[in-house]
Write a protein that binds this DNA or RNA. Structure first.
Lengths: 195, 195
DNA sequence: CTACTGCATTGACCTATGGTAAGAAGTATG
DNA sequence: CATACTTCTTACCATAGGTCAATGCAGTAG
């Protein structure tokens, strides 16, 4: 009964003990394998996921079939295509599984119910939205103003743990460059005794 | 009494008539001139602005003194550095005035009070956050996956009105390219009979 | 009218990053 | 163990976009 999600709700979201069982009733869990697909572009996203264990990615596929990674989510992160979930419109993005994963699954209705049950949950949900905006804005600022090398350095500072779990070509995709370019960037950094 | 802001609250946010005077009491207005500065990077952002008339921009300045524009706001748009406003941390970004403007000014406390006075306001505020995220994500997707030309075409489709009011070098800055490059992109498009 | 200022354009040249192809190393699979 | 696959790297060339400098063209202050 002491799942990572309940622990997170209790310790991080500060949901009161008495409310935990009420929320626990409303969620379900899924066990997924590497390469499983959770959302395909064109579908409406009906769920939000909380990663208890594993790793997910949110990405788009362009007209040439190239994938562009918008977001990763590992342990204790939420993942969804919020635009599609909230507005009920088809998603431009897909979500799939990079490592065998254990997920908590819920929907928009859960968020509303949980917000009315627990004021702390409501507050935390707004915190998540605000934080997400801050993060995306910072990333845009890097994309319009910084070199591939600077962006890579930012990435490994921010996601040191993920850097080891994610193949480099996916990091390149997240940074908006090709795997070959990232390889060259890394070579350049290693020549400068970086790391 | 029929200010653009109250009209917006009533018609777009769907705040009830009886709540309008309560909210109106809590705001103030400012009249600003082109080039006035509303927020300087390094300061904590204390306000959110609603543009009744005029045009604002949110931008960063990099170590070489180059400006990178993150966002514009014209009539009936809200502008703030939400990260700094919500978290109380110093802003990486600045806000200034591109055209003589009339603004409604309020703070985070207003948002909370207004949310408790008017359920419609609370709902709309969450809508704004969700919409902002959707918009930023889309922009990131373009920055990591699309050419300067594609991004420019997206921009003028989305902001046809602004395209005429904003100097091209600022549009270039928003797109993450130089003014010279934008000029060449435009030349290329005109050769293809674009527009 | 003249001078000044800011913006857009253009050309010549340069640099960062992309495209392609190949090989090396590691890892999964039968 | 053998094979196939994925990832990473490297080399070579191509290209988008950056840099710098010059020009032209308003708008506007004197």
């Amino acid at each position: 009964m002491d799942s990572p999600f309940l622990k997170y709700l209790s310790q991080t979201v500060h949901v009161k003990q008495e409310h935990l069982p009420l929320l626990d009733e409303l969620i379900s869990r899924r066990q997924l394998k590497k390469n499983d697909v959770l959302l395909t572009a064109g579908q409406v996203c009906k769920h939000m996921f909380f990663v208890e264990e594993g790793l997910l990615r949110l990405f788009s596929t362009d007209e040439n079939g190239k994938e562009h990674i918008v977001q990763f989510a590992s342990e204790n992160w939420f993942m969804s295509e919020r635009g599609s979930l909230y507005f009920g419109t088809p998603s431009e993005f897909s979500i799939d599984v990079l490592e065998d994963s254990q997920l908590v699954v819920f929907d928009q209705e859960f968020i509303e119910k949980a917000s009315s049950i627990s004021a702390e949950f409501r507050t935390y949900n707004e915190y998540l939205l605000q934080n997400h905006i801050r993060h995306l804005q910072k990333r845009i600022n890097l994309l319009i103003g910084a070199s591939a090398e600077q962006r890579y350095i930012e990435f490994i500072n921010l996601y040191a743990d993920l850097t080891l779990r994610i193949p480099q070509w996916m990091i390149a995709s997240y940074l908006g460059i090709t795997p070959e370019s990232l390889s060259r960037v890394r070579k350049g950094l290693s020549r400068q005794n970086f790391k």
